[in-house]
Design a protein around this nucleic acid. Sequence first.
RNA 1: GCCGGUGUAGCUCAGCUGGUAGAGCAACUGAUUUGUAAUCAGUAGGUCGCGGGUUCAAAUCCCGCCGCCGGCCCCA
Length: 642
Amino acid sequence: MSDIITVTLPDGSQKQTARGTTIADFVRESIGPGLAKAALFARVNGQDMDLARKLDEDVKLQIFTPKSPESLELIRHDAAHVVASAVQKLFPGTQVTIGPATEEGFYYDFFREKPFTPEDLEKIEAEANAELKRDMAFVRTEISMDEAVRLFEEKGEKFKVEIVKDIAAKGAKTLTLYTHGDWVDFCLGPHAPSTGKIGIIKILSSSGAYWRGDHRNPMLQRVYGTAFFDKKQLAEYLTRIEESKKRDHRKLGKELDLFHFHPYSPGSAFWTPKGTTLYTTLSNWMRQLTQNDGYVEIKTPLMFNKGLWETSGHWGKYKENMFLVLDSESGEHDFSLKPMNCPSHHLFYGFKKHSYRDLPLRYHTQDVLHRNEAAGSLGGLTRVRQFAQDDAHIYCTEAQITDEVRRFVKLLDHVYKAVGLTYAVKLSTRPEQRLGDDSLWDRAEGGLKAALESLGLEYELAPGDGAFYGPKIDFAVSDSIGRRWQLGTMQLDYLAPERFDLTYVGEDNAEHRPVVLHRAIFGSFERFTAILIEHFAGAFPAWLAPIQAVLVTVADRQNDYARKVRDSLRAKGYRVEFDERGMSMNAKIREAQLQKVPFTLVVGDNEVSGEGVSPRRYGGEDLKTMKVTDFEALLAKEAALP
RNA sequence: GCCGGUGUAGCUCAGCUGGUAGAGCAACUGAUUUGUAAUCAGUAGGUCGCGGGUUCAAAUCCCGCCGCCGGCCCCA
């Protein structure tokens, strides 16, 4: 065996080096001291490693520096270690658990009696950043599992011992430790060469979190933070957080007067006239789109006897989340407000005998639903107790699934594109808590997979995330400031037709089982409205804007004319207001801009004599004075439903 | 439901170590009639989230409940 190995770099070039050379030495000697200094970690044959690791065979090597996007995740993980060591230094007796990097930063969960106060967090941040200045090396060592258990037992780290034992139970023989200064944790790595590479650590918040996410377990204290290579990047991040707070739909909901909440009905919104316009515009839009796509709309009861929920399986699996209604005759909670539409649609399907010629049968519904969500989880419009989905259930044959999925994706794509949302696709498979046997799940998952693949859609697999009655395709959208929301969904259900004994008569004159597709695009009107408010920062396109144009007169003598223009535009179906309050013209224009109304129409003597208006777009762009009829044509174009 | 924070006028907020509440904007009234982001003056508006307790005295201190906010869990 030769003592010389070949290293292949990302550009395809190859270098020779002695077997056993560390990556750091190889980079310094064979590539250059500049890269060696900047390097944070390496990817060797696809596996991420510390720079201190040795090269033992011919490899493909890639070096990451602060310029690589992957490096942020690395230093955030480094930062989690540093924060944990800082916390244990400042608060002796605190036990450590886990501390992963997240999309925006990292967190670390600690076990201690007292929660951290804001002052504690400041101290932690100061100490963590002091540790960065000390520039301590991250040193990797390996020990046996028995030694590891002993090590953490000696330290009194009960949670660590539990994790080590779990890892051992999975068959691991050794454990990798990382030490910086005198603080040690086990971790797969890799880490940066030293704490000085991290740049800056910012502690953001703290909260409670259950050990392993289970509410029966002890409550841990979670510290959230983030890390960047320099102060400027951190400042940009904090600015971005501030910006997104300005778009928060709860804040804009107040400023633009869209909705309210009252303590007497937590989690259920009151919609103002403007908010209602938003809501019904979306509702009518979805009606039109589904109708054009071969759906029929139906309405079913809001409240049902528990018999329905027993048939559907909700009584067993979902009762906790249902609002039960006391039946005064029986004295029992025999009724429940519906938390989902599906069971009532299945009943509806069963009212008639269906032929294969009826299929696919697409029922659309926008009925109100109630779910008794945990009090602590309610928030704004994104998590409510009363809401409506743009729901539909498609009853079809197994052979029609692929076509129906394709058709649905096309509709969904139209909707998301119209409002400027991009999306990613996820296929969720059987969860642990489920109804139905494995052969049913095999067919259901296979059916969706086949449909996605026939569409050539890229998708991510999420094992275990399916609904209890079937697998699903989820569509996660990204809004204008890069946040992700799970909205659209298509769920395949072989189980409900069995439970509800749904049938159709086939060409062979025999009875067959249809399959059911549950699907939604908005998800719920409430959540979708919230997302659009934030996505557009309240500045809605004209077709969606609660008020499309506001008239402002220069002086009172134009008021009659302004009323006439308002009425004629209203008669054509546009949402137009005339601001008649006793304020100055400038104040009214300012107000219209703050309310983000798409068009402000200024009217003075010139406009009166020329039968025109002078429109100004939201944002300040002045359009030239134009005839009212020309403005109408402009509005007609921009106010049309997409 | 759990952990932590928080709750003063329609909105945004002040009110220090306890001495029975204040500003700006909005509203209302009057004056002003103005050409593209705040005209001026005046008036009115509050059981300080709710219920107990401590105290001569509570927005302020203590307890309970409710809501909201940040998380956990769950999820459209």
